[in-house]
């Protein structure tokens, strides 16, 4: 009951700020969805108070004082009454459905002028590809501009969820799923994966960084050129964490899904084919472009190809980074 009162207070203040029930409203869709939420909440609250109130009232009012009682004879049905409490809820359900559906329709159709960002989900990382080809581990967007996400999964089903935006969409392997939002609040907003995807499911978090108007473009420009500003090895380190390498390849020698990068440079490796290979620039490049062609013995050929996903300069940087991990 206390929780409920707090909730009522929370709803009374419902605005853009975080309330008792709902997180901050930070997208254009949030207000409409929260309105439907509140609408259902109040209808439910009324029904709940009627049902529970009457239950308690009757239990007290008509309580048999001894531990037993004789039965009373009363009418055992009343068709008009029963039809009434069948029809009234039915009528109430129509607007509940309708408002929910209407707000949902707005969620599904991205405006034509949306800024398009590619989303790639893989266990257990998000990658966001900007129109210029730059890939980042966080989703950077301009404020007050619709952003359309074209999402794909590399392995199993994931789900893209930003509570503050009230946006959620499964990322299903083998198809593109699309969602969109228009951020209204500058700042960071958390991204969750909400479709169970294994060990790292709950760590598959990222953030949306909403830039003030005008600053997004400069950020993108800056970020895209990070290779020019950093040494190759430093750039490679960034790529290592941003492009999903670190999920499988450690830099401390421990074995995960793929071989660790530590001290790998120049080493001799036996392949599944039985051949020996020296880890050099050519081998690293080949492994990135066509991972299945030269698999190190003892590992599965699970790595997806990065062909078309990494530029020459980036591969060079990664090679430099691996080389630096002696």
């Amino acid at each position: 009951m206390g929780a409920l009162l707090t909730a009522l207070a929370g709803l009374a203040l419902a605005g853009k700020e975080k309330t008792f029930w709902l997180p901050k409203q930070s997208s254009t869709a949030a207000a409409a969805i929260d309105w439907v939420w509140g609408f259902i909440f109040w209808i439910s609250a009324v029904f709940f108070f009627i049902i529970v109130g009457l239950t308690i009232l009757f239990a007290i009012q008509y309580r048999a004082r001894k531990g037993y009682a004789t039965a009373k004879k009363h009418s055992s049905h009343n068709t008009v009454l029963e039809l009434t409490w069948t029809i009234i809820p039915t009528i109430l359900l129509i607007p509940i459905f309708w408002y929910g559906f209407k707000a949902y329709l707005d969620l599904t159709v991205p405006p034509a002028n949306s800024y398009e960002i590619g989303v790639t989900a893989q266990r257990w990382a998000w990658m966001f590809t900007y129109p210029n080809g730059y890939v980042d581990e966080n989703l950077h967007v301009p404020v007050d501009r619709p952003v359309k996400l074209v999402m794909q999964s590399e392995d199993v089903i994931h789900s893209f969820f930003v509570p503050n935006f009230r946006v959620k969409r499964d990322v299903v392997p083998g198809r593109y799923n699309i969602t969109w939002f228009e951020a209204t609040e500058v700042g960071d907003h958390v991204i969750f994966c909400t479709e169970y995807c294994g060990t790292g499911h709950s760590d598959m978090m990222s953030k949306v960084v909403v830039h003030p108007s005008g600053e997004f473009e400069t950020w993108l420009e800056d970020a895209s050129n990070f290779l020019d500003k950093l040494s190759p090895a430093e750039g490679g380190e960034m790529l290592y964490s941003m492009r999903g390498c670190k999920q499988c390849h450690t830099i401390d020698g421990s074995v995960r899904i793929g071989p660790s990068f530590k001290g790998i440079w120049g080493a001799q490796h036996a392949l599944t084919t039985g051949e020996q290979v020296t880890v050099d620039g050519n081998y690293v490049r080949q492994s990135i472009m066509d991972p299945a062609s030269q698999v190190v013995a003892g590992y599965d050929a699970v790595m997806p190809t990065y062909k078309g996903r990494l530029k020459d300069q980036e591969i060079t940087a990664i090679i430099a980074y691996i080389k630096s991990l002696q």
Binding site: A32, S44, Y104
Partner: peptide, 10 residues
């Protein structure tokens, strides 16, 4: 009812 409503369920 919350979960049956499309927009809120999202």
């Amino acid at each position: 009812l919350f979960l049956g409503s499309l927009a809120v369920d999202i």
